[in-house]
Amino acid sequence: MFSQLKSRFGSGLAVGIIGMIAIWLIGMVILPQLLMVDYSFRPNLLPADIGGPKDTYSLVNYETLFSNKIHLAIFFKTIWSSVLVTGLTLVVSYPIAFYLAKVATPQKAALCLLLLIIPFWINEILRTFSWYIILAYKGPLNALLLGLGLIDRPIRFLSGDGGVLIGMVYAYILFMIFPIYNAIESLDTNQIKAARNLGAGWIRTHWRVVIPHAKPGIATGCIMTFMLAAGSYAVPALLGSPGSRWFTQIIYNWFFEGGDWNQGAAYAFLLLVICIGFIALVMRVFKVGLGDIAK
């Protein structure tokens, strides 16, 4: 990289550019993370005691999670719900991505993409809050369903995990659609025609030809959606009920209400480890490498 930059900008500028990247990576990304990891292994002490005899490394902060049944349950529920959100988003996004990439005319596809993107110009909190309004007990969705006679009593969408799931699928759908769309777009349309021509129905055409080709895009979309869902704060905070707390809310509480940064850091670090484990698992399942995903 250095020689490339050097040949293009000269050695002075090349050193400058690489130096800045290094400062950014080390100062803004790596050091703060390391600091958090360091925090997570130390007890929460009064300022006077920091550096004193009580300030020793231990796994106590990590053990807290496993001894606190409620926190542990929320932790697993967060992981499981994120998997569910990822799956739901995939199910919703794949047909849309296929339609945009292979069925719609270019004009229609452009219009649909625009319509999909416009809502995302609005702040996430506002967008999520609009779902709060739509899904409310006396909100328009219930009114519509009542009016159509499909239900005879309003549904409490927001009391369980339902609201959170809907909100998250909506919030992260673009992160799923775009990678899949890109992958399907690059598939030669004649491949689909060839499969049809050889007698394959639509399901088999997708299963044997389109999905194998789109696998890296599907994996990328799943990874991004899962990470965003597991790390989401706004959606569960707004659309969740007290019974459907997200693990990020617990981390938040440790930091800003409990004032125990060390405990919060340990929780956050555990979440990160699980997420990385999930990525590795997805890549295994889809048999894709890092190189495929970066494409």
Binding site: N190, Q191, A194, R196, N197, L198, A200, R208
Partner: peptide, 29 residues
Amino acid sequence: PANKRPTSMIFQNLALFPLMTVAENIEFG
């Protein structure tokens, strides 16, 4: 529909399935 017609096509760009082996390609139909 296309998948029910007694025709078979050889495409201009061949459109072989690159993720399948030669035998899998031939046996697909």
